[in-house]
Amino acid sequence: MTIPITYYLLLSAVVFLTGVIGVLIRRNIIAILLSVELMLNATNINFVAFSRHLEDLGGQVFVFFALTVAAAEVAVGLAIIIALHRSKESINLEDFKLLKW
């Protein structure tokens, strides 16, 4: 007995919504980046489930590329956080309002 794809979609939707909530309500920049990782993983689960469902390896290749881009995003994002911390002595999001009007 195999699992219908709906369950995978449901799991992925729950994880993605958790990531959206995390991005919106956390104030720690590192926690926000972690929530972005949650959302990326939710889409990866979707890709792999559909790749199995449609018997097409393209989905798994796309997950591979998503992993590459996630690694690049993490490297640049953490470098930005280090630079911000060096200039403001803080990683709290509400301390960065230079572009706010």
Partner: peptide, 22 residues
């Protein structure tokens, strides 16, 4: 790789625990 990078930055920046919600 990625989580080790995260842990490295968290410990480098000595992130405070008093991070309340937005």
């Amino acid at each position: 790789a990625i989580l080790v990078l995260y842990l490295f930055v968290v410990m480098l920046l000595n992130a405070k625990q008093d991070d309340r919600y937005h």
